[in-house]
């Protein structure tokens, strides 16, 4: 077992454990903090796959901007453990069983697929570096890039319109 494999298992266990803590914590603030831990573990996976641009964007956009927005909203509403709404025990059990069945179906369908003879290259390959992605983004994908700026503008206007009083 070399360093790459140890890192892979460590990051995977960290991601799965933090994701489980997101859905089991009673306090919404703890859920947000565990979700940030999950995003850092996924960023670690990106770095291991040598997708450094996406790792940085994941940390800045998700763990930085989006999660701070979530924290602001939760603290604005002053949510805490005592007013946290809970589903009944049977509904929770049914939800967990349904999710488990989906997991079972996915695993059973993909267990013997052809694709698992191949492997993803780790620590090598330079397609994930900023220079290569930037060249592709501003030549082949320049139209979607500009359209996404319009999307951002409309989302910003929409958020202000929805959020303002009356």
């Amino acid at each position: 077992m070399n360093v790459t494999q140890i890192l892979f298992w460590f990051l995977s266990v960290l991601a799965l454990f933090s994701a489980l803590m997101v859905i089991t914590s009673k306090n919404p603030v703890h859920s947000v903090l565990w979700l940030i831990a999950t995003f850092f573990a996924i960023s670690g996976h990106y770095i291991m796959l040598n997708a450094q641009f996406l790792a940085i964007v994941n940390i800045i956009v998700y763990a930085g901007a989006i999660m701070v927005l979530f924290l602001f909203v939760i603290m604005l509403m002053n949510l805490n453990k005592s007013i946290e709404p809970q589903k009944s025990k049977w509904l929770k059990l049914a939800g967990a069983v349904a999710g488990g069945c989906l997991l079972l179906v996915f695993v059973a369908a993909l267990k013997d697929s052809e694709v698992h003879l191949q492997s993803a290259e780790v620590n090598t390959g330079d397609i994930g570096l900023i220079s290569n992605l930037g060249k592709a983004l501003f030549s082949t994908y320049v139209v979607p890039f500009e359209i996404s700026s319009i999307l951002f503008l409309s989302a910003m206007v929409g958020a202000v319109v929805i959020g303002k009083k009356e």
Binding site: F8, I23, P85, S113, H116, S119
Partner: peptide, 29 residues
């Protein structure tokens, strides 16, 4: 790393997300 490790990790994370959507009532969660 073999690709199926990543496939199973992603499936597990996705199903955890689905269980969260089905079992919680808080809109933010």
């Amino acid at each position: 790393m073999p690709i199926n490790y990543y496939i199973f990790l992603s499936i597990a994370l996705f199903c955890i997300g689905i269980v969260g959507v089905l079992t919680r009532r808080n809109a933010i969660i």
